[in-house]
Computed example of a mutant assay.
Amino acid sequence: MLSNLIRKLLRGQTFREWFVEFLQFCTVGLGAYIVDVGLFNLLAYSLPIDLPGDKSLTAKIVSVTVSVIFAWIANRLWTFKKRRNENKGREFAMFALVNLGGLLIALGCLGFSRYVLHLTTQFADNVSGNIVGLVLGTAFRYVMYRYFVFSPASRREKVASCGEKTADA
């Protein structure tokens, strides 16, 4: 039973191959994190411009959007290059939807901190949006990238239409 679960989670990879993929994902994630946090703090606290709405929430939306584009390119070309989708538009749309989920997780944490706990300092915003929201959002993203976004559509559609099980299912 446990070996069956491990085999399904590894999706035909050895543990070493999976571990290298996971480290690449974490490296890309670190780069995206630097883009996200740096741009968030620049927009929310450093530039003398007024963003529409709540400045912190708007800055978070912009910073996550830019970091998502960076992460898609890096994951597509490096982390999941052997399993990327031929249809780039479909893959990016799925990637964007997954990251919308990640954004909602980060915004939920930030909004809860600001509007429920009434913690409105730069430190509180960074802890709630860029640490708690990031950890929860990253776990969500990795699972979704691995099993849905960077999984060739033809294999998923074949399984869905034929009811067959493959090594990926």
Rank of each mutant, 00 (worst) to 15 (best):
A139W: 08
L47S: 09
V37N: 12
L119T: 04
V66A: 13
S3V: 06
V149Q: 02
A59G: 01
A139K: 11
A169Q: 11
Y45N: 13
R146I: 03
A169D: 13
T138N: 12
R155M: 12
V149Y: 01
G102F: 00
V149T: 08
Y145C: 05
K60G: 14
C109D: 06
R90A: 03
I61C: 14
K55A: 13
E17K: 05
L134Q: 14
C26A: 15
I61L: 15
D50K: 12
N41K: 07
M1P: 05
L2S: 12
L77D: 02
S151P: 04
E21H: 11
I34E: 12
W18A: 13
K88D: 11
K81F: 13
L77F: 07
R16Q: 11
K88R: 09
G133Y: 03
L42P: 15
K81M: 14
K88Y: 07
I61S: 10
S154Q: 12
L5K: 03
A153L: 11
W72R: 09
V149K: 02
K8Y: 05
R84C: 02
T166K: 03
L10T: 10
L5M: 05
V28Y: 08
Y142S: 01
R76C: 05
T121S: 06
Y33F: 15
A106S: 06
I73C: 13
L104V: 08
F92Q: 00
R156C: 06
F80R: 04
N87M: 05
V132P: 00
G129I: 03
E91L: 01
D50I: 10
N75G: 04
Y145P: 07
N85D: 14
K88L: 11
F40G: 13
L103N: 04
G89R: 04
Y33K: 07
C109S: 09
I49W: 13
L110F: 02
F15P: 12
R155F: 12
F123Y: 11
V127G: 00
P48T: 07
V28S: 15
N41W: 03
